[in-house]
Amino acid sequence: MKVIMSLLFFDMAFWFYLATMLLYFGYWITKREWLGQASTVLAIISTFAISMMLIYRTKEAGHAPFSNLYESMAFFVWVMSIAYLIMEFRYKIRILGVFVMAVAFIAMFATSQLSYRFQDIQPLNPALQSIWFELHVFSAFIGYAGFGIAFALAIMYLIKARFEDRKTPNVLIDRLPSSNMLDELSYKSVAWGFAFFTLGALILGAVWANKAWGTYWSWDPKETWSLITWFVYAAYLHARVTRGWRGKKAAYIAIFGFLSTIFLYWGVSFVLPGLHAYASQ
């Protein structure tokens, strides 16, 4: 039997991400510096494994690895890992890894639960054979990853802000960065996410739809959910400059935004019919 390298690397990455998540968690609890360094190293190894998975997938399939849920999830985890590592090196805050890697591992887990028919390599159907499709997915997923990181940060923000308000010391919570810092990083992630999401999901998606179907907007459920998600994050950006809406309310919007993103990504494929339904292929 021929070994499918991409599946092999995916399985490896799965265990690496599990280990990475646990290690970051251990670092958070014990605050041992060597555990922190080991977590970072393992995060790099996991990212390497998922990169190899994507490279092999591209080689095996003969097209960019975005054609189904399985491939695109791996790509999502890849973008999020890279973005996280950049953030860790820039801001030197390792504790963020606990939450971000938890999101990454949950994504890996969800992907591994997909039935084999989604993991299989599919040739591209006629509509997907376009450079615009590839740019569309590539950019949209940078957006998703930004939203995913912002979601993790918003949860941390809410926890931290609650303890700061009560002024109750707590060993674990005190190790989190200040709520102001978390708020700012969360904003930055949304800003990156929003820019790439708008470019990828909405603009490049419209360019592609216009090439393939002759109309740049058709209120297809996937398109509509992209727009809904976009409205939510636009609300987040404006909440941050509105008196009475900054801070906690904004953080809740960031959480809602990511729930909307998950529905846009998974829910629409399985629940609502449409042009984009990966699941119905």
């Binding site: 209120w219 809904i228 939510v232 609300a235 909307s260």
Partner: peptide
């Protein structure tokens, strides 16, 4: 006012959700 912006954006989101739940 920006509060009105938030109201409009959330309303648009909710109305659009209804549009995806009820077949058009």
């Amino acid at each position: 006012s920006l509060k009105f912006t938030l109201f409009t954006l959330f309303s648009l989101a909710i109305v659009s959700i209804i549009g995806t739940v009820i077949q058009q």
